[in-house]
Amino acid sequence: MTTTALEHELKELIIETLELEDVTADDIDPQEPLFVEGLGLDSIDALELGLALQKRYGITLESDAESSRQHFANLKSLAALVEARRVK
């Protein structure tokens, strides 16, 4: 299982944004859910992460809750989102 450069960048962004002290990039499995299980992030963390992505990559999302959930499901889906929508 290889990790792309973007995935690695996102791992660093998550750790830095959410100040996850005990987590290293290697601990984040790209396929594992980020929220509730997996990393155990909550809905506030999701907002924070969304804002960080917006700041760094200029990404926008559709407004429906379901697509947010899909994009934020795991690191892989997040990387796919950034890949497709980044403007910077």
Binding site: A46, L47, L49, G50, L51, L53, Q54, K55, I59, T60, L61, E62, S63, D64, A65, S67, S68, H71, F72
Partner: peptide, 13 residues
């Protein structure tokens, strides 16, 4: 009805 990451991102912009 709920604040989602996409709402937060719109507001951030």
């Amino acid at each position: 009805s709920e604040i989602t990451p996409s709402t937060a991102m719109t507001l951030g912009r």
